[in-house]
Simulated scan of single mutants.
Amino acid sequence: MADLTYRRLQKAVTDLAKEVAKGSEAIRSAAQWIDEEAQDTARVSEAIGGMGVDPDTVSETSELSKIMRGVSEAAIAYASAGDNTTKAAKAAYDQAHTTHNGIQEAYSRAPVDMSNLNREWLRQE
């Protein structure tokens, strides 16, 4: 495995936050669509009830609407969890920036080629 560098960490965390945010938005859109379909199904249930359709069919249609609303609510909760993950990834990015950016800047400005520097030497006390 390649060494984890500050820049790789920045990119990985940023990519993760973007990917999770995109997924959360897709889930939220699907949940809204399911909710709209649940509302339509509830209206159909009321309409067929008024038309004298057998009670079992009306009841099943109404139950389907309730199930669809439950699915929509669960999907929205799942998307909210994704939002929390995005926030955590951004917080990790901010923390990495706070703790390591100064080191990265000093490393980038160093007039000496430090690419072959033995990191174990730096860890010695």
Rank of each mutant, 00 (worst) to 15 (best):
Asp3Asn: 02
Asp3Ser: 00
Leu4Pro: 07
Leu4Tyr: 03
Tyr6Gln: 08
Leu9Cys: 08
Gln10Val: 12
Leu16Pro: 03
Leu16Asn: 13
Ala17Pro: 07
Ala21Leu: 08
Ala21Thr: 15
Glu25Arg: 13
Ala26Pro: 06
Ile27Met: 15
Ala30Ser: 15
Ala30His: 14
Gln32Leu: 10
Asp35Gln: 10
Glu37Phe: 03
Glu37Tyr: 02
Arg43Lys: 09
Val44Lys: 00
Val44Thr: 10
Val44Trp: 00
Glu46Val: 07
Gly49Met: 00
Gly52Ile: 01
Val53Asn: 04
Pro55Gln: 12
Ser62Asp: 08
Ser62Ile: 02
Ser62Gly: 11
Leu64Ala: 11
Lys66Trp: 12
Gly70Ala: 13
Val71Glu: 09
Ile76Glu: 15
Ile76Phe: 12
Ala77Tyr: 04
Ala77Pro: 04
Ala79Ser: 14
Gly82Tyr: 01
Asn84Phe: 00
Lys87Leu: 01
Lys90Gln: 15
Lys90His: 13
Ala91Ser: 07
Ala92Asn: 11
Asp94Arg: 15
Asp94Ser: 15
Gln95Leu: 13
Gly102His: 15
Gln104Pro: 01
Gln104Arg: 11
Glu105Met: 07
Glu105Lys: 08
Ala106Leu: 13
Tyr107Gly: 05
Tyr107Thr: 08
Met114Asp: 00
Ser115Met: 10
Leu117Phe: 04
Arg119Tyr: 07
Arg119Gln: 05
